[in-house]
């Protein structure tokens, strides 16, 4: 803490010996450049990743996932420079697909968004320490986040329950089959509860209408585009897939219902929204521009009853990268 390296929790000292052991287990050369990270525009090498990962309590087998995640976040489409500086409470959520979920014990069942004991906590914390120590994201200095979010301490790292999903895995649908990580700029997580619906349309209506709240960044009069993500529990997913076996139809349904009438907004909002060309002929404004911008995945416990929505910050576009050893 005195060195300014910490997040407030105890850290494991990154001794030369521990870092060397981590690098050996991770199987990467220490001087390999993974990315240049803003705002410091600093070179993030494998060694810097290893040092921070040791401090966070990670094990070396997470190195391929860490490298792929950092690479995804540094993609210019992700706008890490803006994300790290914003007044918003955004944090990159990392969604893991492929067999690596089980090898690294990444949670995708009950409690996957937080609370279940898993190495994902240390992996997420390592990413956050890299943002702090290497990228230079510091509250009050280079980050203006008004509230921050608990996800900025140990990240949001979870997987998709592919085995219970009636649809292809998220990363595969985004062109990366097998082991993959998807970086998504999440404005935290929020719950959607429904104890009444018993049909695909019922569940999807509740999810879509819950996501369409006027303070979501996607509705900002300054937002040309945004994405949104929902995690559907396997019980609901099974019901939904009987009516909508194609994931594209699920996305289209959610996109259509995830909208607000323009007269719902106060008059001063209407011209800026209209100037962006976002008012449809039927007088509605959609949260995101296209059905493809609604990201859908299956995760969560078998208790059903709940879905999770993760709104996007806005300008950062989701990036999926393969995880390679």
């Amino acid at each position: 803490m005195a060195q300014g390296w910490g997040d407030g929790l105890p850290l494991i000292p990154p001794t030369q010996e521990r870092v060397q052991d981590f690098l050996i287990a991770g199987g990467r050369f220490p001087d390999e450049l993974i990315a240049v990270l803003p705002p410091l525009r600093a070179e993030c090498t494998v060694e810097k990743i290893a040092i921070n990962a040791v401090m966070a309590g990670c094990t070396g087998d997470a190195m391929p996932l860490l490298c792929a995640a950092i690479g995804a976040m540094a993609d210019s489409k992700f706008d890490l420079a803006g994300l790290n500086a914003t007044t918003g409470s955004v944090v990159p959520a990392l969604i893991v697909n492929g067999p690596i979920r089980n090898r690294l014990d990444i949670p995708y069942q009950a409690g996957c968004l937080g609370g279940v004991a898993s190495p994902a906590v240390a992996i997420g914390r390592a990413i956050r320490l890299i943002m702090r120590n290497v990228a230079g994201q510091l509250i009050g200095s280079t980050s203006q986040s008004v509230y921050g979010t608990p996800g900025r301490v140990a990240g949001i790292v979870f997987g998709e329950w592919e085995e219970r999903s009636p649809w292809a895995p998220l990363a595969e649908r985004r062109g990366v089959p097998g082991d993959a990580v998807t970086a998504y700029g999440a404005m935290g997580t929020a719950n959607i509860c429904d104890v009444v619906a018993n049909s695909a349309d019922g569940f999807l209506d509740m999810i879509a209408k819950s996501m369409a709240y006027p303070g979501a960044n996607g509705f900002l009069p300054s937002s040309a585009f945004a994405e949104t993500l929902c995690a559907i529990n396997p019980i609901w997913a099974e019901v939904i897939a009987k009516t909508y076996p194609r994931i594209e139809d699920v996305q289209a349904y959610l996109w259509d219902k995830c909208a607000l009438p323009i007269d719902w907004f106060r008059p001063e909002y209407r011209d800026p929204i209209a100037n962006l060309g976002r008012i449809k002929p039927d007088g509605r404004v959609h949260l995101v521009p296209m059905p493809d911008d609604v990201l859908v995945m299956v995760a969560g416990g078998e208790g059903g009853l709940h879905a999770a929505m993760l709104h996007s910050w806005g300008t950062c576009l989701t990036v999926t990268r393969p995880v390679t050893v």
Partner: peptide, 12 residues
């Protein structure tokens, strides 16, 4: 002697 490695990056 225990050597602690620096997790940070230097300014451009």
């Amino acid at each position: 002697m225990t050597i602690i490695l620096d997790p940070g990056a230097s300014l451009a």
